[in-house]
Amino acid sequence: MKKWMITIALLMLAGILLFVFISPLKSHKAVSQQDLRDPDFLDGKDILLYVSTSADQDAFGGGKSYALFISQDGTLSSFKMKGLELGSAKVHGDSVMLEDKNTIFTIENGLYSYKRTYQHTGDSAGFLQNTDGFYTLYNSGYDKKGDGYRSELYRQMNGEWKKDVIPCYIRASGFHDGAIYALVPTDDEKGYQLLQIQADQKKLTYQTITEWQYREGASIESQLAADDQAVYVMVRGQKASNLYQMVKFNKKNGKVELYDIAEYKNDEQTIYSSMPFSFKKSFFSYHGSLYFIDGFGKVYKIDAKTGKSRIAFALSPEKMKADFKEITQKGSSLYFFTYTYNQPAYIEQYSLKTGKKVKEKEIGKVKEIVTPKSHLKLYDFEVMKDF
């Protein structure tokens, strides 16, 4: 009898050990291009993260990036690519765009890849309704022929990728209604020109809307937000180093207005901590208001017409301590992704209307990809479906 009980106990222990060692493999799967060619690959996928090494890692041949697809049940699929600092991953409906230093990938009823000129630094990406395709913009560096700085724009038109060159450095960019807006330095580098780049037509055209002279020491703290009337950006140091202001560029008459948004204690540590943790996504337009999320997780709601602002709500103070933080807006929701090394990752959903946390989801296997030795940084975060 004792031998029989011991046998049963050993079998139970073996089952537990098998579950412990096998179940993590089920919840994290490394996928290949062949897997992405499956027309059903995106089914059930809710979240997309893009992590990559920085450009200096590529100098030694160690650059890499991953697209992390997270399913409804919390399982994670990782697709490995080459690196691209500040690269993007974008979602539109049932299609996805990914990129690395040499290739643009699109997933829609299968996988399509486009080999393009080497890029070392991304800027922004999005979707053009009129051409029914993605675009992606790069700060490409100085031309080898000595013709000056160039930024390269790739657009999907009639299903094919088209390359255009914008002959300037882009400090910040944004997109609205078929146009890409870009802040580029003036010739004397004492100000910025605001360009409107009409990207949804076959021939790329751009024009200068206005110029803005900034005070020495002032810094751009966000990408651009835009609506039908104006283009907006967050700056610090124009009036004082501890004051964030919103710059409003009127599209029709070129008028430039500044509004005080957030003021902090004037000491070095507080000023540093107040800086947005997401340059790409800390500032956006939604239903007649602008939203700005600072380094403390405070969410400011700004009236687009008057520039008046108030703190609408705050992100979880505990989650703000995480090693990795990123936000994304979809409809009336703000999603907040956090991850600390060797711990589960989390996504919190907040209502922009009420400021209340609606939902929270735990993701266990990000730690298998993003480790302290991986040198990976989080560069993009997209919600594919409501989770």
Rank of each mutant, 00 (worst) to 15 (best):
D188N: 12
V165G: 02
S54W: 01
Y291Q: 08
G297R: 00
I209E: 10
K190R: 13
A226V: 04
K301M: 03
T53C: 06
Y149G: 13
I166G: 12
F69N: 07
I166S: 09
L153W: 05
S274L: 10
Q129W: 06
Y350C: 14
F19Q: 12
F19I: 11
F336V: 08
P185I: 00
G133S: 05
A172W: 04
E360F: 00
D58V: 08
L76M: 11
G295P: 10
Q129I: 14
S332D: 14
L68F: 00
I209F: 04
K365S: 14
Y206F: 13
N342K: 07
F324C: 10
F296G: 15
S77P: 07
F127V: 08
T131D: 04
T53N: 05
D46A: 04
Q156M: 14
K319C: 14
A322S: 14
G148L: 06
V184A: 12
R37G: 14
Y154A: 13
R150N: 07
F41H: 07
S65K: 06
E362T: 12
K301N: 12
L25G: 08
A30R: 11
S309W: 01
G297K: 00
Y192S: 10
K64Q: 08
R215A: 15
V358D: 14
G159L: 02
N250G: 11
N242E: 06
A125C: 13
K203D: 13
F60L: 05
D200N: 15
F324K: 04
D177W: 04
V370Y: 00
E189M: 09
E221T: 02
V31K: 04
F127P: 12
K301I: 03
S54T: 07
A322K: 01
M275V: 14
Y379W: 02
G63R: 00
F249R: 09
A322D: 06
E263L: 03
Y169I: 07
V51H: 00
T117R: 01
K321L: 09
E263D: 09
S219H: 06
S285D: 11
G297L: 03
E263H: 05
L334F: 06
K82W: 09
L11N: 03
C168M: 06
R155I: 12
R155G: 12
L258K: 08
L36A: 04
V256S: 04
G148T: 01
Y379C: 00
Q343M: 11
N342P: 13
V235I: 14
A225L: 02
S309V: 03
S351F: 05
Y135D: 06
Q329F: 00
S374M: 06
L18A: 15
S52I: 04
Y118N: 06
Y264S: 10
F41Y: 07
G141K: 09
S32R: 09
K373P: 02
D94E: 15
Y142R: 12
L68A: 00
L352W: 01
V51W: 00
G174R: 00
G355H: 04
K361R: 11
I363P: 01
G364E: 03
S273A: 13
T117A: 06
S309I: 00
A218K: 13
I47N: 02
M320F: 02
A14F: 05
Y346R: 11
E99F: 01
I220Y: 07
K298P: 12
Y214R: 07
I363A: 01
F387A: 11
D143K: 10
I209M: 12
Q245S: 11
K29C: 04
H92Q: 15
